[in-house]
Write a protein that binds this DNA or RNA. Sequence first.
RNA 1: GGCUCCAUAGCUCAACUGGAUAGAGCGUCUGACUUCGGAUCAGAAGGUUGAGGGUUCGAGUCCUUCUGGGGUCACCA
Length: 648
Amino acid sequence: MSNFSIEEQLKEATVQAVKDLFGAEASTEQIIVNDTRKEFEGDLTVVVFPFVKFARRSPQQTGDAIGAYLEEKFDFITGFNTIKGFLNLSIAYSHWLQIFNAICKEENYGQHPSTGKKVVLEYCGPNTNKPLHLGHIRNMLLGYATANILSAAGDEVHKVNIYNDRGTAICKSMLGWQKYADGATPESTGMKGDHFVGKWYVRYATEFGKEYKAWQETAEGQKVFEDWKQDEKAVKKTLKEIEAAKKKAKKEGKEIKAEDYTLQNYFFKKVYEQTYMNTYSKLGAETSEMLRKWEANDPEVRKLWKMNNDWVYEGLQETFDKLGVDFEKDYMESDNYLQGKKVVLKGLEEGLFYQKEDGSVWVDLEDMKLDQKLLLRKDGTSVYITQDLAVAENRYADYQMDDSIYVVGDAQAYHFQVLKGVLQKMGKPYADGIHHLGYGMVFLPSGKMKSREGDTVDADDLIAQMVEMARELTEEQGKVETLSKEEMEELYRILGLGALKYFILRIGAKKSFVFNPKDSIDFQGDTGTYIQYNYARSQAILRKYNSDDYKQAFSFDNGIEDLEKELIMLQYKYPSVILEAATNYDPSIVTVYAYNLAKTFSKFWSAHSILGNSDEKVTAFRVALTANNARIIKSALNLLGIEVPNRM
RNA sequence: GGCUCCAUAGCUCAACUGGAUAGAGCGUCUGACUUCGGAUCAGAAGGUUGAGGGUUCGAGUCCUUCUGGGGUCACCA
């Protein structure tokens, strides 16, 4: 790629100019090269302010001096002008053509040579007690696209998944099934496995709610509340919270039911639920009992557990396939949670951690501006972070990676800081390469998604809905009657998923956004569909041209059109766009690029005739431009996990 | 309260990591050749970049003080 990097050539030329003209040593890093703004003459612009002090002249004079020098010494520069300290340089169109000819010859244009860097990228991270929702979709699209982009930038990338396949939540879904399902299975009900299990998880929550509500009326429940009311400080704090919650609900335009905000109801709902679950609840006791049995390897419970999880895996795999994401390896929390304990004890032995009198193990991360963190409970069992330490270690044994990327919601930013901190303290070779790729939450118009209450956008539903919308729109417009039924179905899938993926990936990862299922996603304007449409039209041109004559090296005596040059400049940027997206772990850079490419091509399409030229060479050239553009659009969209249709 | 992320046109998002007059799409309004695909193209209107201060040739971008919002600060995962 670097052999035709025009920016580098220009930077080196400028360094030489500054040296010869002003006797000053500049480095290429100091030199800023931008695209020239459309309203000025020129292609590339050098910012001259950095050299003004060497030159001891005005920006205008400095720019003119450098410009004159460059124009004289370098053939590829054909003209210049200096405006307000910006040196605009015109690049010979023949030079752009050379670049274009070189791009056309490259097989995997955009793919960078190997960096030798190994990267493990973890994404998705489902629980085995419920199906995936919109948040997971954002996660998977980000993770999958980032992995592709890193590969294109030359890294060796391993995509892995981590299943949270044990613990209280999974016991709840198991218990829900055991108590209420009456032996039903996904097969017997025709339900997708993950939805089936999720159903019993929700059922558990409902039954627990009933039990809890009933208990609140009992003398025991009332006494708990009355006792708590004696604690003035706690009551005061809670009253404040209630006011805040009310205000918030009002702001979000939610209906306010007075009974939700009485002190008693709020106390039971928000303050006391966990305690009730652990002390009085029958269902809660059964859950803990099941968890204990699971940890003790009770055969019955393990069998139930395996059945529960296998149902979920099967269901999830279907969703992964539909979305087009994949994993090289699955890590299971259940395989790692015990090992984490050993890791911690070893660190304790080495004096990296300390033990409190009750036997719990802690790490002091205050020198990293983090807190004291618990690593092992007083009963010796592990917490969330303990198992992540083990997973990290196992992963290193598997891959010896330089970088580990965790695609996990922003809510866990603190957790990953701590994880990295602990691993650094332990002197692990992979610690510094840990990077948390966080992303903002997806909200519904009604607020946060709550899976326990079934208030979510289900991943499978959403995908189906998008495909359906693509169908309706296509039929409405009476398009592509020439396709067979299967081809049509395939097209709807490509269009629906393309719109969904583009819509989500074009938003910077850090931003939270509100997803409105009602007016959902556009198929017009800055959308995946627009770019796909662009590709389909290009294919139509190629079909019509129906020849390989465009595969040749071009040169013209009379120059080329501005839009043609603009397209070449954009196409030429593709590799550096990939690199930028990779260093920032940011797929949205690729979406923006793909859109610009499509937009510029659309302009070109309407401004010039591609096939109908008297000069066959011009036609061949424009077809070559079209083919190249289509190739890059396809490649860029594929990086994002978006497919392209040949007709639509 | 500590830490952290976010705030740009009515709405959804950009802005090449400090560069020129802040750009797109949606929505609104106006237009597009009997010729390559109108899911398109051309144009109009729409902005004190949440507020103030600072750093410098230059700030949406960096520093700082506020304001508003999200997240987090569990022997939950």
